[in-house]
Protein backbone atom coordinates (compact mmCIF):
# COMPACT_ATOMS: atom_id res chain seq x y z
CA UNK A 1 0.00 0.00 0.00
CA UNK A 2 2.90 2.31 0.73
CA UNK A 3 0.86 4.61 2.91
CA UNK A 4 2.90 4.30 6.07
CA UNK A 5 3.68 7.62 7.69
CA UNK A 6 7.37 7.26 6.96
CA UNK A 7 7.96 5.31 3.84
CA UNK A 8 11.68 5.24 3.50
CA UNK A 9 12.25 4.77 -0.22
CA UNK A 10 11.86 8.35 -1.45
CA UNK A 11 13.80 9.96 1.37
CA UNK A 12 16.45 7.38 2.23
CA UNK A 13 19.26 8.93 0.24
CA UNK A 14 18.31 12.58 0.70
CA UNK A 15 20.78 15.07 2.13
CA UNK A 16 18.39 16.82 4.51
CA UNK A 17 21.00 19.30 5.69
CA UNK A 18 21.28 20.51 2.11
CA UNK A 19 17.51 20.92 1.90
CA UNK A 20 17.45 22.70 5.23
CA UNK A 21 20.04 25.18 3.98
CA UNK A 22 18.13 26.14 0.83
CA UNK A 23 16.52 29.57 0.64
CA UNK A 24 13.22 27.98 -0.35
CA UNK A 25 13.09 25.87 2.82
CA UNK A 26 14.16 28.81 4.99
CA UNK A 27 11.29 30.77 3.46
CA UNK A 28 8.82 28.02 4.29
CA UNK A 29 10.05 27.80 7.87
CA UNK A 30 9.91 31.57 8.25
CA UNK A 31 6.39 31.78 6.84
CA UNK A 32 5.25 28.98 9.16
CA UNK A 33 6.82 30.36 12.31
CA UNK A 34 5.99 33.99 11.65
CA UNK A 35 2.35 32.97 11.60
CA UNK A 36 2.03 30.30 14.30
CA UNK A 37 4.26 31.85 16.99
CA UNK A 38 2.62 35.30 17.22
CA UNK A 39 -0.80 33.69 16.89
CA UNK A 40 -0.07 31.19 19.68
CA UNK A 41 1.26 33.93 21.96
CA UNK A 42 -1.75 36.10 21.12
CA UNK A 43 -4.45 33.58 21.90
CA UNK A 44 -2.66 32.38 25.06
CA UNK A 45 -2.40 35.97 26.35
CA UNK A 46 -6.08 36.59 25.59
CA UNK A 47 -7.04 33.32 27.29
CA UNK A 48 -4.96 34.01 30.41
CA UNK A 49 -6.24 37.59 30.58
CA UNK A 50 -9.70 36.06 30.69
CA UNK A 51 -8.75 33.52 33.39
CA UNK A 52 -7.06 36.18 35.53
CA UNK A 53 -10.06 38.51 35.22
CA UNK A 54 -12.38 35.66 36.21
CA UNK A 55 -10.31 34.95 39.29
CA UNK A 56 -9.37 38.45 40.44
CA UNK A 57 -11.82 40.90 38.88
CA UNK A 58 -15.09 39.29 39.91
CA UNK A 59 -16.93 42.61 40.19
CA UNK A 60 -15.98 43.62 36.66
CA UNK A 61 -16.92 40.21 35.26
CA UNK A 62 -20.24 40.34 37.12
CA UNK A 63 -21.28 43.65 35.58
CA UNK A 64 -24.65 43.16 33.90
CA UNK A 65 -24.66 44.22 30.26
CA UNK A 66 -27.98 43.06 28.91
CA UNK A 67 -30.63 41.44 31.09
CA UNK A 68 -28.89 38.75 33.09
CA UNK A 69 -26.00 38.49 30.67
CA UNK A 70 -22.83 39.84 32.27
CA UNK A 71 -19.33 40.69 31.07
CA UNK A 72 -18.03 37.25 32.15
CA UNK A 73 -20.46 35.37 29.93
CA UNK A 74 -19.79 37.68 26.99
CA UNK A 75 -16.02 37.30 27.38
CA UNK A 76 -16.42 33.53 27.70
CA UNK A 77 -18.43 33.39 24.48
CA UNK A 78 -15.89 35.69 22.80
CA UNK A 79 -13.25 33.03 23.55
CA UNK A 80 -15.30 30.70 21.37
CA UNK A 81 -15.51 33.32 18.62
CA UNK A 82 -11.76 33.99 18.58
CA UNK A 83 -11.01 30.26 18.57
CA UNK A 84 -13.19 29.75 15.51
CA UNK A 85 -11.73 32.84 13.84
CA UNK A 86 -8.08 31.82 14.38
CA UNK A 87 -8.87 28.34 13.08
CA UNK A 88 -10.32 29.77 9.88
CA UNK A 89 -7.47 32.24 9.48
CA UNK A 90 -4.81 29.54 9.89
CA UNK A 91 -6.44 27.26 7.34
CA UNK A 92 -6.63 29.98 4.73
CA UNK A 93 -3.02 31.05 5.47
CA UNK A 94 -1.77 27.46 5.14
CA UNK A 95 -3.62 26.89 1.92
CA UNK A 96 -2.31 30.08 0.36
CA UNK A 97 1.17 30.54 1.83
CA UNK A 98 2.45 27.20 3.13
CA UNK A 99 1.07 24.29 1.13
CA UNK A 100 2.28 25.36 -2.34
CA UNK A 101 5.89 25.93 -1.26
CA UNK A 102 5.91 22.75 0.87
CA UNK A 103 4.68 20.74 -2.11
CA UNK A 104 7.40 22.28 -4.32
CA UNK A 105 10.16 21.30 -1.91
CA UNK A 106 8.65 17.83 -1.51
CA UNK A 107 8.60 17.31 -5.25
CA UNK A 108 12.19 18.47 -5.41
CA UNK A 109 13.25 15.91 -2.83
CA UNK A 110 11.24 13.10 -4.39
CA UNK A 111 12.73 14.03 -7.74
CA UNK A 112 16.20 13.38 -6.24
CA UNK A 113 17.33 17.00 -6.41
CA UNK A 114 19.03 16.70 -3.04
CA UNK A 115 20.56 13.21 -3.05
CA UNK A 116 23.70 12.71 -0.99
CA UNK A 117 25.85 11.82 -4.00
CA UNK A 118 25.56 15.47 -4.96
CA UNK A 119 24.50 15.07 -8.58
CA UNK A 120 20.84 15.04 -9.47
CA UNK A 121 19.55 11.66 -10.54
CA UNK A 122 18.00 11.15 -13.91
CA UNK A 123 14.48 10.75 -12.54
CA UNK A 124 14.38 14.42 -11.63
CA UNK A 125 11.84 15.42 -14.20
CA UNK A 126 9.51 12.52 -13.68
CA UNK A 127 7.21 14.30 -11.28
Amino acid sequence: MGNDARTQDAAASVDFEEVQATQQFKDLRKRHRSFVFPMAIGFLLWYFAYVILAAYAVDFMSTKVWGNINVGIIMGLLQFVTTFAITGWYVSYSNRRLDPIAAEIRHGIEGHDYDKSGNSALGGGAK
Partner: peptide, 10 residues
Protein backbone atom coordinates in the same frame (compact mmCIF):
# COMPACT_ATOMS: atom_id res chain seq x y z
CA UNK B 1 12.60 19.72 10.42
CA UNK B 2 12.34 19.17 6.67
CA UNK B 3 9.99 16.24 7.04
CA UNK B 4 7.77 18.02 9.56
CA UNK B 5 7.25 21.07 7.36
CA UNK B 6 7.14 19.49 3.91
CA UNK B 7 5.66 16.07 4.62
CA UNK B 8 8.23 14.34 2.45
CA UNK B 9 8.03 10.57 2.82
CA UNK B 10 4.72 10.87 4.63
Amino acid sequence: EVRSLTGVGA
